[in-house]
């Protein structure tokens, strides 16, 4: 028996999300008294792979193959399943990000492993195996029991945190069995957004709504985000109108995020918007309408005009930065 974590890499590098997954896997391995194996697919150098050991993995399995430079769902899920079978892994863990959502269902069918997606805590028990996830888009929690022998979980980003350990992991490589059938989709072109903090990775997010009145008023949002090392976000009508790129749209039908600090400027706080941001550890709302529902979800509220409050806030942050 063992626990298997899959983490992707971004241009050969891991990030906080990877270490959080490994930490979470280590937690479950300890609960079940077994070892933790991490699998990496694609080109990652040995030094970077070794870092996964610092968060509790006992063994790191690397799979390298020129055909695997892009995510191909069938091929990747075949590889993960093959490694799980070879290592006798009964619990497989992925992120609940785009990649995890792409792979987990296929792996679940291959291993006949009950899948719980978006888990946000350690299992409350491992026999029977019961784990908590969010349901109704953040409006409720559910405890889910997995009845199958094999189990698969996808972890909600920023829900567990990272924990360093003393492990020294060894690295092994693995040659998967792949067929043409695993490569029936082909990536033709890739566009990457560079030089921006990714919304899903950000510790702080500054977000604007329709109350910002127009794209020409986004200067203060970007300036504040820049000062705080934050990502920028927006409400759905803002991206629907094309004021901001759609990858900034947060909420029920956009991105679901859980930063430490979410600053909402000119956002009313509709239930569908809150569905995407209510897991933030701290919410600041700036709105001129004291009855706006955002104040029911916020920890700190400022009733005022964004055009005036944001520049003042920027000055206060600058002052704070120079003093600290």
């Amino acid at each position: 028996m063992s626990i298997l974590v899959y983490t992707e890499n971004w241009d050969g590098k891991f990030k906080k999300l990877s270490y959080e997954l490994v930490s979470y896997g280590k937690g479950i391995a300890d609960m079940m008294g077994t070892s933790l194996i991490v699998i990496s697919i694609g080109d990652v150098d040995q030094g970077e792979l070794k870092k996964l050991g610092d968060y509790g993995s006992d063994k790191i399995i690397e799979v390298k193959n020129g055909k695997l430079n892009h995510l191909i769902n069938s091929a990747y899920s075949s590889i993960i399943s093959q490694v799980a079978e070879k290592e006798g892994a009964t619990v497989v863990i992925l992120s609940n990000n785009f990649t995890g959502k792409a792979l987990a269902p296929r792996v679940s069918v291959k291993l006949k492993a009950g899948l719980v997606s978006g888990v946000n805590a350690m299992p409350s028990s491992t026999d029977p195996f019961i784990v908590q996830k969010k349901t109704f888009t953040g409006k409720a929690f559910a405890n889910v029991k997995i009845n199958s022998v094999n189990k698969i979980l996808t972890l909600a980003q920023n829900s567990y945190g990272i924990k360093e350990t003393e492990n020294k992991a060894r690295i092994e490589s693995f040659e998967p069995q792949l067929s043409d059938n695993d490569f029936r989709t082909e990536v033709k072109d890739v566009k990457k957004v560079t030089g921006k903090v990714l919304l899903t990775d950000a510790e702080i997010v500054v977000s604007g709504g329709r109350g910002m009145k127009g794209p020409e008023n986004w200067g203060p949002i970007e300036e504040l985000a820049g000062l705080l090392g934050a990502a920028t976000a927006c409400s759905r009508p803002v991206s629907d109108k094309g004021w901001r790129p759609h990858e900034e749209h947060t909420g029920q039908t956009g991105k679901i995020i859980a930063p430490n600090l979410y600053i909402a400027a000119g956002i009313s706080g509709a239930i569908q918007h809150l569905a995407g941001v209510s897991s933030s550890k701290c919410i600041v709302a700036i709105n001129k309408d004291h009855e706006a529902p955002i104040f029911e979800a916020a920890d700190y509220g400022v009733i005022g005009d964004v055009q005036k409050v944001l520049p003042d806030l920027i000055e206060a942050v600058k002052e704070f930065k120079s003093e600290n």
Partner: peptide, 10 residues
């Protein structure tokens, strides 16, 4: 393969 045990509100 799975079943909901119970639910709670935040």
């Amino acid at each position: 393969l799975t079943e909901f045990v119970d639910f709670s509100l935040p």
